[in-house]
C-alpha cells in the first residue's frame, strides 16, 4: 500500500505538506514508549503511536521511519508539525486507536516490522 491509501484506510488527516502519497510502505510498528520503538523497529516502517510530542518525529528520523500515524485523533502541536515538515517526515492523525489501526493495516497485507527482542542475553 502507499501512504495515500493508508491515510484513507485509517480515516486519517494528513498533517504535513507536500508528502508523496505514492510512497510504498510494506510494514508497520506500534508503540507509545520511544525506547521500545527504538529497541525493535525495523527500518522503513510505518510508526503508529499514541504519543503526541516532537520526540515522535525525532525517534522516527533516528529509526528511518517512512511515515507516522498519530492515534486516537490527537492533534500535534505546531512545533511538531513544523519539525515533521522541515524533516520531510509524513505524518497523519487518525481517530482510531493502536489496536484498530494495527488490525486494519494487517488486514491490508501490511506486515509487522517489529524484530523479536532477544531476552536470552539477559537471563
Amino acid at each position: 500500500m502507499n501512504i495515500g491509501e493508508i491515510a484513507v484506510l485509517v480515516q486519517g488527516k494528513i498533517l504535513t505538506d507536500g508528502i508523496n502519497k505514492n510512497l510504498e510502505v510494506v510494514g508497520a510498528f506500534a508503540g507509545d514508549l520511544m525506547s521500545d520503538v527504538l529497541a525493535t523497529i525495523k527500518p522503513e516502517a510505518v510508526l503508529i503511536t499514541g504519543l503526541n510530542n516532537p520526540q515522535v518525529i525525532r525517534t522516527a528520523l533516528i529509526a528511518d521511519v517512512r511515515m507516522v500515524i498519530i492515534a486516537r485523533g490527537k492533534q500535534p502541536s505546531i512545533e511538531m508539525v513544523e519539525l515533521a515538515n522541515s524533516e520531510g517526515m509524513p505524518m497523519i492523525s487518525s481517530p482510531l486507536g493502536l489496536f484498530e489501526l494495527s488490525a486494519r493495516l494487517a488486514e491490508n497485507d501490511i506486515v509487522s516490522f517489529e524484530q523479536e527482542f532477544d531476552l536470552s542475553k539477559y537471563d
Binding site: 507509545d32 514508549l33 520511544m34 525506547s35 521500545d36 527504538l38 504519543l51 520526540q55 515522535v56
Partner: peptide, 8 residues
C-alpha cells in the same frame, strides 16, 4: 512523555 521504558 513516552520515555522511561527501561530500554535506554
Amino acid at each position: 512523555k513516552g520515555f522511561g521504558a527501561g530500554m535506554g
